[in-house]
Design a protein around this nucleic acid. Sequence first.
DNA 1: TTGAAAGCGCTAACAG
DNA 2: CTGTTAGCGCTTTCAA
Lengths: 328, 328
Amino acid sequence: MKRIGIKDLARLLSLNVSTISRALSGHPDVSPETRERVLDAAREFNYHPNLHARFFRKKNSGLIALVLPELNSFFIPELIQGVHDAVEKKGYNVIMFISGDSPEKEAEIMDHCLSWVAEGVLVSVSNRTVETGHFRAIQSAGIPLVMLDKVIHTADFSTVTINDHSAAWSATEHLIRSGCRKLLGVLGNPGLEITRERAKGFADCLEARGFLPEMSRIITIENIASGEEVLMEEVIRGGYDGIFVMSDELLLFVYPALAAAGLYPLKIRLAAISDGKLPHAIFPQVPYVQHSGYQTGRTAAEKLLDEISGKDPAIRHFTSGINLVYPR
Amino acid sequence: MKRIGIKDLARLLSLNVSTISRALSGHPDVSPETRERVLDAAREFNYHPNLHARFFRKKNSGLIALVLPELNSFFIPELIQGVHDAVEKKGYNVIMFISGDSPEKEAEIMDHCLSWVAEGVLVSVSNRTVETGHFRAIQSAGIPLVMLDKVIHTADFSTVTINDHSAAWSATEHLIRSGCRKLLGVLGNPGLEITRERAKGFADCLEARGFLPEMSRIITIENIASGEEVLMEEVIRGGYDGIFVMSDELLLFVYPALAAAGLYPLKIRLAAISDGKLPHAIFPQVPYVQHSGYQTGRTAAEKLLDEISGKDPAIRHFTSGINLVYPR
DNA sequence: TTGAAAGCGCTAACAG
DNA sequence: CTGTTAGCGCTTTCAA
């Protein structure tokens, strides 16, 4: 069935296309009766504006690009929802890209954003990205870009993250306060800013509390499959009484491994940084510092929209507050 | 900085726009030297085609719409990834919508799809949707539509789901085989096809295995917040030795509630339908029938792409195989 | 092998 | 209040 256009309506109603256009977009210069007739006809013939044509003409696309390195189970879905809620309120739509954690792919995606004339770009940076040329290209095309969650800290881009250092510190301190004397930190990809900051928060807190170097250790789990072995070997050898887990993804396998070995909850305490769902699904509940995906996504999207509308063009770095959640 | 277009390149190289267009799109009728010059200039001046203009002209948008009622923790992220992988291979991009589980919103979104001239629509139907007029509107505009996961079974739309009935049956049978004699089924939204089918699979299996009506019961958890109370009251009263849990979302709270009460793993066995991550994160691991989000997304997207390219215009209902995963 | 020109659907001057 | 018209960036006939 042929798609009906503004021209068809014009012919049908023996009016001019511009009158139709005006009636449809609520322009004041059009008589109420005419407007009604047009609106009725539009409904009747199932008219839908062609946004490509409209935006093509008006030089803006109504699209916000959301670029993610990969999807995970807790944080990212919430983040997407946050972005979505913020963006939708202003009538924008989301076009989503997944870089698969590849900087090359990421660069291609930036080209796509340019080609789609996205009005703004939200990007959670790939773990292996070091070069930022492709991001600057977006900016120099006049398109606002905000980094969220996984970011590169320079003076050039606005960012939205949590304060990873203090989140890790806070979780670590909770373990110490609970009486732990020998601590293990379980961390993810070491190339990431987010990992380095959390590792540092963990280490700094220990130092500040007078822990000697031999009273703590950090292990890195890059691959969940082999992770359990690495973890259990260290745990058994080390005699730990507390473990700091850096993320939900890690907690998802640290918990059953310890439980199966009979170590949690009897011999070892846990504390995590989490979006907040998983710790409640574990028994006994794990204390955690909340890292809200929804807030991150929403804040970043709102900042981006402000930049788009010229309201807050300054580069800013938002770090959301930390709050520790104890089991009830 | 002004965006550079095909016209600017033409002026720069003293060529005609059509030559540029041809060179850029790899048309054979253009001399190798000219092509080189054009490609070089495009790179140098950072040319990016305007897809709105291109697709506007060519009558197709390169967009696949993905419409979801809401995001969850395990299944949906995998589904998105599956859709993404399939679609990207063919050069399409994904424009994402969230209906918030509202039929009205869903109808609006269908209008957006029309307005964006999406070339295909993938939709996981809102729980409360009964009227399908807005979906037919898409089809009668000549746009293929495939439903996935949450679907409405009619002769009009292709669908991709798992065989919910046999998944539930299989999980239930596993409990019976393990020796359970009194079973509880924990189900979600009762308005959903998916829920009805799983409830039926549970009940049918029990009947086939000779369970008397008083040896089983079904409870419905619509709201996670109040769910724990409902669950525990029933569990304590009923004296169950096995519980069938219909989804990851439900398992996420059923497990800690039972564990906290000291019932799991000692007195009660569990079996679930799950994407496959969460059961491994629980101790002891929960047997489950796998419901793969990735496969669902991927299969649906591939079917959609086939329909778009005219390869498989028939309406089909795919139900993926079931396999039961035991704890190792 | 290249150029000229029309037209995709819509908006926005400008004119009446 | 309504009509006329040009043009957004690109592809695609048709001509040269």
